[in-house]
Amino acid sequence: QEPLDATMLASAPLMDQKQLLGERLYPLIQAYHPNLAGKITGMLLEMDNTELLHMLESPESLHAKVDEAIAVLKAHQAK
């Protein structure tokens, strides 16, 4: 799979940009949380694309955001 960069991303329509990012984030998130990967990816895709690109390059920041997303998701489901 080709690496994704900001230039390539910017040339795609907005929803396609999210799709491209989602396709790359999903397998990484699935490694941490197989059961919640779809929901977590959906949550992270609400963030700015520049942040999402950074997360693809930095496992630490991805992991931190995934943990954050899970906390938010659990709080939401507890309502």
Binding site: M15, K18, Q19, G22, E23, L25, Y26, P27, A37, G38, K39, T41, G42, M43, L45, E46, L73, H76, K79
Partner: peptide, 26 residues
């Protein structure tokens, strides 16, 4: 839509075109 929606967050499925928050019924 808002964060109180029971169906939030929208679920990403690989290979399925992403529609973001439009996936959620109002």
């Amino acid at each position: 839509s808002n964060g109180n929606n029971i169906n939030w967050p929208p679920e990403f499925c690989p290979g399925v075109p992403w529609k973001g928050l439009q996936n959620i019924d109002p």
